[in-house]
Simulated scan of single mutants.
Amino acid sequence: MTDQPTNQPYDGYDGYDPYGQQGYQQGQQGYPQAHQGYDDPYAAQQYTQQWQGQTWETQTQSPVSAQVTAAEETAYLPPQGYGAPPEAAPVSSPAADYGPATVAGNPRVTDAQRARAEGRSPVIEPGMQPAALTALLGLLLAGAAAVGTYALLVPLVVLQAVTAAGWFRLNGMWPARQGIALGFAGALAADAALLASDRSPSAILGTLGVWVLLALVLQLRSHADPDERMYGLMATVAASALAIVAGGYLAAEADAVTVGAIAVAVAVLARALPLPTPVSVVVALLAGAGGGVAAGSLTGLGTSGALLGAGAAACALIGHRVASYDYPSRFVHFTAGVSLPLSAAAPVVYVLGRALV
């Protein structure tokens, strides 16, 4: 190692230092002797060190700028195997192009989406078992109405409780204990007001208004997000309204309750038969009318029971359709699927019963 002026060529590179770092080589070999004997620290800059012969710096190491550029170009690429060409590396895509991560590595597809993709209907109807429970509850209502008002109160309370719980579960809000309890409490209050007012329908309307106000107060005290509070308010009001309106069986004439409940039971069973949907609806309506005629012959309605039975069956089919959902749980079918056909038919049973009896 010798000290030479800086204007001498650097191993054939015409004075170009590929690293731009003269002190780097000095630091690798210790402080050079050229620094000794100089009082002026800047005087040592007139000389530089030069290795005799070729070294690894001049043969194998690429310039630092080229290394930085290569690092920047490959910083976000996944590790590649040895010998793989750079252009074969996959190009990364934004995370919004894929669904949530799954064990299988594919975007999650719900059962409803798969059914639509395959051309099938995503709506699943309750089926025969919930229909059988609906028919059983309808027969209990019909028989209890023939016995007396307080006997009717027992299956009616069961219907109102299942209605409140089923509506919240149908809307995906479970557990929602406060809303379910509020809806069921409104139904009990309406029943008590009906009994106290000699089954006046104004008791149902008054209770419904008070319970809407209570639902508003309950949601205003909630600390949830505004959208969630609004959704909870609508579910609470709807559940309370359905459970309270089911009290119309208590306000209706006993014969009308018997005819209407039997018509709903027959119509729901017919609707659950494995038939095409249009055919099944027509068969259910005809079965409801026929059930109304049969029940009317046992009561004072006679052939007028056909009209009442058809009206109750139509409302029951609406409630049945509401209980059908995109691949719901069994709990939905065994709560909302059981109760909504009977609860939806209560207003028609009251109105037509008053008009026909």
Score class of each variant (00 low, 15 high):
T2F: 15
Y10S: 13
D17W: 07
Y19E: 15
Q22E: 15
Q22G: 13
G27S: 15
Q36A: 11
Q45P: 04
Q46K: 12
T55S: 08
Q61R: 14
V64K: 09
A66K: 08
A70F: 08
E73T: 14
A75C: 10
L77P: 10
P78G: 11
E87H: 09
P90L: 11
S92C: 13
S93C: 07
P94I: 02
P94M: 06
A104H: 10
T110V: 08
E118F: 12
S121P: 00
Q129W: 15
L133V: 05
A135L: 10
L141D: 14
A144C: 06
A145E: 04
P155R: 05
L159P: 09
A165W: 07
N171C: 08
W174E: 10
R177V: 09
G183A: 04
G183W: 05
A187I: 09
A190G: 04
A190D: 04
A190Q: 04
A192W: 06
L195F: 07
A196L: 07
G206W: 08
L216Q: 08
D227Y: 09
R229H: 03
M230Q: 13
L233Y: 03
T236Q: 05
V237G: 04
V245K: 02
G247Q: 03
E253R: 05
G260C: 03
V283Q: 01
A284Q: 08
A289S: 07
G290D: 07
A295S: 05
G296E: 02
T303Q: 14
S304G: 09
A306D: 05
I318G: 06
G319R: 01
H320Q: 11
R330C: 03
R330S: 07
H333A: 02
V338E: 00
P341A: 01
L352D: 02
G353L: 03
